[in-house]
Design a protein around this nucleic acid. Sequence first.
DNA 1: CTGTTAGCGCCTTCAC
DNA 2: GTGAAGGCGCTAACAG
Lengths: 345, 345
Amino acid sequence: MSKREGLMATIKEVAALAGVTPTTVSNVLRGRGRVGTETRERVLEAVAAKGYRPNLNARALVERRAPTLALMLGCITNPFYPEFTLQANNAARRHGRFLLVCNTDYEPDGGTGFLADVAGSLSDGILVANNGDLHIDELTAIQAAGTPVVISIWESPDISPGIPCVAFDSHKAGFIATEHLLDLGHHRIGALIGSAKNGIHGGRYRGFHDALRSRKVKHIQADARFVTDSYQGGFDAAVDLLKARPDLTALFVSNDLPALGALNAAATLGLRVPEDISIVSITNIELASQSRPALTTVAIPTAEMAEQSIDLLIKLGAGEMDVPAMIRTADPVLVRRASTAPVKK
Amino acid sequence: MSKREGLMATIKEVAALAGVTPTTVSNVLRGRGRVGTETRERVLEAVAAKGYRPNLNARALVERRAPTLALMLGCITNPFYPEFTLQANNAARRHGRFLLVCNTDYEPDGGTGFLADVAGSLSDGILVANNGDLHIDELTAIQAAGTPVVISIWESPDISPGIPCVAFDSHKAGFIATEHLLDLGHHRIGALIGSAKNGIHGGRYRGFHDALRSRKVKHIQADARFVTDSYQGGFDAAVDLLKARPDLTALFVSNDLPALGALNAAATLGLRVPEDISIVSITNIELASQSRPALTTVAIPTAEMAEQSIDLLIKLGAGEMDVPAMIRTADPVLVRRASTAPVKK
DNA sequence: CTGTTAGCGCCTTCAC
DNA sequence: GTGAAGGCGCTAACAG
């Protein structure tokens, strides 16, 4: 590979043009130190004339910190992530940082080397979007090596991963969603869970379970399906479940994406939503308001989690010691739309 | 900001541990130069023992090229981009590069400084996803300064932006979509275009227009709406158009997202798709297959464009001179689904 | 208020 | 086959 010509102006050239030293140019550009008004003018002119921009790599090297933060997520193709990413990106930019968005799903070695490279020099902090498949030991090692790590979208406010994190109350989300169904008079409710029973959506499932129990409603294991957290996963499981248990009047789905699949599955089976079957889920991604019928769902504080995570990362990077080990975000709230209605049968 | 402790091992430390010089370690790690088998062993052990990873910033500084490629896109929240991003990311990783995903939509100064920083040192090449609002002069300047620039998703294979690009035939896409409608017997066809008449979807619109003309079907301006390229834009415009022109039997929409909005709008107006109105669009994002009815659309070669763009960027970065100024991708193809049917009235 | 000196961690060139 | 010297572009610490 032939290296490209160095057509970029360096600080030296700018300094020469302005008749000062690199230090002064550096000071002017970063507002450090005291520089005479006139000198500053001259420097600024030279900078403009040369179209100079500092080499961020060189700066990172000497400052021992990169101007970037990394966001590790499974697959950007899951519609939840773009929404989260946008908020995280905006928050990072507000702090003058660039956000490195890292798709880890298709990394060959499971992303180990990838993560180490990104953490080691490419970025100044790692924001891990919890996908239920965290390698805590790796993250701990990275943290120990000096790079701040924050886990976001943590589902259990009462269990700590041992790494700074931003959590929401997933149990309450499941509880609220289920209460809504119960309030509408449903008591034959199926569940579609986008993980294993004790997987990432375990808290949501327990919320569902506890809501039923609090109203003395029976729930049999046959009415639950533990599936892939995807549109297709929801579709397939809904077809299966609705056929097997035709007496169900409502479905609790642990996530919007499979709920959208379930919505379509119901239509495919000739069931009207919400007349024949109500569907409620959790998250409130943008698509939830665009489906037909629009999806009733329990909104989790996505934007808040993204922002708090970035803020926390910045604080950790700045060496602040009084940072909380866990930030609990606002409670989830029910967003009533058109996919749920009072029970009829 | 207190700089973090340098707990990361340096090449020097590794070299010391292995009883060699940094040069040798470097050579071993990159497979350069000749190194004795035994020495190599010792070095590798030391590397493992220290958990050493080269500092990518330092390397970028001395090599004068970063290990990252940047993807500039409007807003990651538009569902087309995550799909494109995933492919670009995978292609970049195949070349050993990291992909820096840059949301430009919310940059304060229109992203000028942002782009310059990213181009100047953070990345070794810029992939610009065409959103119809390109600042060609800026891109040219960046290119002139030595950073390769490639424009992807270019819509007109016969017009060059003056910068290396990867294009698909948007005119043909519009033509094919419209022909499909004509073949089904429609001739009162409305158009929802996600840009100004000569904006980014201008080629698609002309394809629509030319298809009608080739069959001697009249198209009056009142049947076209130039709207925001979004779900809501499509929804609103469809409501408006369908009310104003109740005799229309089909809708040509320039993009899937507004088409999805139109689909919902039709239902809101009590029109059945495709019985009362057929809808066809262009792109074939994943959502197109998940709507109800599933959307008939003309697929554009998204994955191919992403891959070719990255490949081109890599070649340009390697200083290859025999690179084409424009790469034309495969032709768009019709994907028949459930939103179109033979005309009835 | 401005300049000098030193070095961030690595790679390249050239001796040995 | 291996080592020594020099420098990438920048900022830190200190001197003046």
